Simulated scan of single mutants.
Amino acid sequence: MITGLAAGGAEQQLRCLLPHLRARCEVAVLTGHGVVADAIERTGVPIHHIGMRGNRDLRAVGRLARLMRKHRYEVVHAHLYRACVYGRLAARLANVPAIVATEHSIGHEHIEGRRLSRPIRALYLASELLGDLTVAVSPSVADRLSKWGIPRDRIVVIPNGVDRAAFGFDPALRRSTRERLGLAEDAFVIGGVGRLEPGKRFDLLVETLPRLEGAALLLVGSGSCEPRLRELARSLGVERQVIFVGESLDVRGLLSAMDVLAAPSVEETFGLAVVEALACGLPVLYGTCPAIDDLPPGSAPGARRVTQDGLADELEVLAARPPGRLPPPDAVRVYDIRRQAEQLESLYTRLLGAAPMEK
């Protein structure tokens, strides 16, 4: 179960993971529908819409518990804050044998874009006791959970996964995507992928464009900062150089159309877009990315950590001499989605004390 199914990192991760799980799965979503829900339903996985109307809609707990009793689920696995809080309580009320939650988005000061407060932290910690284990998507997240007070023996690190074949560079897709977006074949295209929220700092990419004549910025995602980013582009006279794609499932085509991925986030819990870009052979400039920083040095030679002050200079160098496509590094193989699926199913069967799952 998950809070929503718009095209965010955790939502896309769930969509990509489902085909690789041998267990028979169904999905419950608390709010909204979204493009990811449509994509999941097209694969034949049932989706149950809970219709939650806000953070204080306690009726959602009853609806979830009834759904769980009706279908007699052996495992409930929750993703994102609201789904974790409400889902663990509902699963406990429904006597579900194994209750797991994955923490995708806990930062030092924010969780899923909302500022951390004592009530939010207290509610999270109380609901955590209702589950069996919490999955952290990186060692960095595990450290943050531990500092919150969750015992280490209740935390297991299972990194996010990427299907390498699904993100490989495709020159035909590059041409067709650029043509569809009105981008010249020889244009230098900077990419930004993720929610358009303050912490992603996509404003830094817009501010760089006046220095890069003929360059374009491709922003893939939606969020509260879109109006502000559009106004910033207008004020700098670069509005024609910024393309707001919005939510899209055509990540491979869009990555193929780019020449560099820039991820200047001030805080991340994993950095899935960075790994996907590396799988597509792109050079990457990033501010923080546990997926890369937690690996041994040299695991991702195409990814370079840069300061916010140095980002514009680095982009200027790349624009002058684009490096072309790079071979996918070892980091991409480390985060193979099949490995993630195997680790999750091993966790499920261990909690159930059961034999390995089969379709």
Results as ranks from 00 to 15, higher is better:
residue 335 Y to H: 15
residue 153 D to T: 13
residue 137 V to F: 04
residue 154 R to M: 10
residue 19 P to K: 06
residue 14 L to H: 02
residue 281 G to Q: 00
residue 343 Q to R: 14
residue 229 L to Y: 03
residue 74 E to C: 08
residue 293 D to N: 04
residue 291 A to N: 06
residue 66 R to G: 12
residue 79 H to T: 06
residue 184 A to I: 04
residue 310 G to E: 06
residue 32 G to N: 07
residue 341 A to L: 01
residue 146 S to I: 00
residue 62 G to R: 05
residue 133 L to P: 04
residue 351 L to W: 05
residue 57 D to E: 08
residue 293 D to Y: 01
residue 101 A to W: 05
residue 172 A to T: 12
residue 299 S to P: 11
residue 349 T to P: 07
residue 17 L to I: 05
residue 280 C to V: 08
residue 1 M to Q: 09
residue 123 L to S: 14
residue 86 Y to N: 04
residue 289 C to R: 01
residue 8 G to F: 02
residue 107 G to Y: 07
residue 353 G to P: 09
residue 209 L to T: 07
residue 269 T to Q: 14
residue 274 V to I: 13
residue 110 H to M: 11
residue 281 G to A: 01
residue 203 D to V: 01
residue 342 E to N: 11
residue 40 I to H: 08
residue 64 L to E: 06
residue 260 V to F: 12
residue 358 E to Y: 03
residue 227 P to K: 05
residue 26 E to P: 11
residue 356 P to I: 12
residue 297 P to T: 11
residue 4 G to F: 05
residue 228 R to Y: 13
residue 125 L to R: 12
residue 187 A to P: 14
residue 238 V to G: 10
residue 323 P to W: 01
residue 158 I to E: 02
residue 144 R to G: 01
residue 139 P to T: 08
residue 189 V to W: 09
residue 95 N to H: 13
residue 124 Y to F: 15
residue 160 N to E: 12
residue 52 M to C: 14
residue 256 S to M: 09
residue 148 W to G: 10
residue 227 P to E: 12
residue 256 S to G: 15
residue 257 A to F: 09
residue 183 L to S: 11
residue 287 G to V: 01
residue 312 A to W: 06
residue 231 E to S: 15
residue 172 A to I: 09
residue 34 G to E: 01
residue 104 H to W: 07
residue 30 L to T: 10
residue 75 V to D: 00
residue 333 R to F: 09
residue 181 L to P: 09
residue 12 Q to N: 15
residue 335 Y to M: 12
residue 281 G to R: 00
residue 145 L to W: 00
residue 75 V to I: 15
residue 47 I to L: 15
residue 355 A to V: 12
residue 191 G to T: 04
residue 214 G to S: 11
residue 184 A to S: 15
residue 296 P to N: 07
residue 84 C to M: 12
residue 293 D to R: 01
residue 115 R to Y: 10
residue 234 R to G: 13
residue 29 V to W: 02
residue 7 A to T: 14
residue 4 G to N: 14
residue 107 G to F: 10
residue 186 D to V: 10
residue 209 L to A: 07
residue 332 V to I: 04
residue 346 S to R: 15
residue 287 G to Y: 03
residue 180 R to Q: 14
residue 250 D to A: 13
residue 253 G to P: 07
residue 247 E to Y: 05
residue 243 I to M: 10
residue 262 A to W: 00
residue 68 M to H: 06
residue 119 P to D: 10
residue 38 D to P: 03
residue 8 G to C: 09
residue 37 A to M: 07
residue 267 E to Y: 11
residue 133 L to M: 15
residue 169 F to Q: 06
residue 270 F to D: 06
